[in-house]
C-alpha cells in the first residue's frame, strides 16, 4: 500500500534526521547524505510496503540507507570523484571557521561510525544493530570497541581532555 502525502510528511518529520545521520556516517559528506535521504524517502513513498509500526519504518529506513550508501560507495565514479562540496569544506575548515565533531566523525572508519551512531545515538541494542546491518552481534561489539578507541584517540588529539562522561567509556 503506497503511502499518502500525510504519511510521508509524518515520516519525514520523524525520521529525516535519522536517515541523514545514518547516511552521513557512511558517505561523510552532506550533499551525498542529502541525496541518499531523498532516495530513501522516495523509496519509502513508492515501495508499497505495509509497516507495522513506526519503529518498523525506522529500521527499514536505516537498512535502506545503509544499502544505498554501500551502493554509492561501491560505484566506480564515487571512488574517484571528489565532490566539490568537499573541497569547499576543506577550505571552510582551513579557514578556522569550524573545527568540530563532524571532522572527527569523518575520520572514524565507516563501519565503526555507523555502529557507534546506532548504538549510542539511536539506542539500538547489539542484536538490533546486528539484524539491521546484517552482521553478527560479535561484529557489532568489536566495531563498537574499535570505534570508541578511534574516537578516543581523535578526541585526545583534538582537545586533550575527554571530559568525565566520555572518559568512563574508555
Amino acid at each position: 500500500m503506497r503511502l499518502n502525502k500525510s504519511d510521508l510528511e509524518y515520516y519525514v518529520g520523524l525520521y529525516r534526521k535519522t536517515v541523514f545521520a545514518a547516511a552521513l556516517c557512511y558517505v561523510r559528506n552532506s550533499s551525498d547524505a542529502e541525496d541518499i535521504s531523498q532516495d530513501v524517502f522516495l523509496k519509502l513513498f513508492t515501495c508499497g510496503m505495509t509497516f507495522e509500526s513506526d519503529e518498523h519504518v525506522k529500521a527499514w529506513l536505516i537498512r535502506c540507507t545503509v544499502n544505498r550508501c554501500k551502493s554509492l560507495l561501491r560505484s566506480y565514479w564515487y571512488r574517484f570523484s571528489e565532490p566539490l562540496e568537499k573541497a569547499e569544506n576543506e577550505t571552510y575548515y582551513d579557514s578556522g571557521q569550524t573545527d568540530g565533531m563532524l571532522k572527527l566523525l569523518r575520520r572514524i572508519r565507516k563501519n565503526n561510525r555507523i555502529t557507534l551512531y546506532m548504538y549510542y545515538y539511536e539506542g539500538y541494542s547489539l542484536d538490533e544493530i546486528a539484524r539491521i546491518l546484517g552482521i553478527s552481534a560479535n561484529t557489532v561489539s568489536s566495531r563498537l570497541r574499535r570505534g570508541r578507541s578511534q574516537l578516543k584517540r581523535l578526541l585526545l588529539d583534538e582537545r586533550n581532555d575527554l571530559g568525565d562522561e566520555l572518559q568512563r567509556f574508555f
Binding site: K17, L24, A33, G100, M101, L104, L105, Y120, Y121, L151
Partner: peptide
Amino acid sequence: FFDEALSEA
C-alpha cells in the same frame, strides 16, 4: 558528539 556533528553537517 553525534548531535554536534550532525548540527555541523
